[in-house]
């Protein structure tokens, strides 16, 4: 499982593929932490190639969202998320903590 980070002027795009579960979540946490440690809080998470996410993965996103939203300094946008994942976030009662976008470029532009 590969995680890539692409840096734009004010925004970073993180992309990973496959399953985001208890096994892969720590690696994603590290990738997000590298950004927030560098005081980069505007992040688009490209989920187009993620086909499964468990609560371990959701907590990685929640903790990053918490960190980014402090002092209104940023936001994590979940981009190109598949429908089943959106439904499961809703089922867990955590969907309302996230902003969604169907388009990576638009998400980058909106941050």
């Amino acid at each position: 499982m590969e995680i890539t980070t692409t840096q734009y002027k004010n925004v970073d795009v993180i992309k990973m593929a496959g399953r985001l579960d208890s096994s892969s979540a720590p690696k994603l946490t590290d990738a997000f932490k590298k950004l927030t440690d560098a005081k980069r809080y505007k992040i688009v998470f490209d989920m187009s190639e993620i086909d499964f996410i468990s609560s371990a993965g959701v907590w990685t996103l929640m903790e990053t969202q918490k960190e980014c939203r402090k002092l209104s300094r940023g936001e994590v946008i979940l981009a190109t998320v598949n429908d089943k994942i959106v439904k499961s976030l809703d089922l867990a009662g955590l969907k309302h903590f996230f902003t969604f976008s169907d388009d990576i470029t638009e998400a980058v532009g909106n941050l």
């Binding site: 907590w59 929640m62 969202q65 918490k66 499961s88 089922l91 867990a92 009662g93 903590f97």
Partner: peptide, 22 residues
């Protein structure tokens, strides 16, 4: 309780909610 502001959320318990709902 996930109806509280994000800064008050503790990262636990979502798995059980999912199991019960599914």
């Amino acid at each position: 309780d996930f109806s509280v502001p994000i800064e008050e959320i503790e990262s636990r318990g979502a798995g059980l909610i999912l199991i019960k709902k599914i």
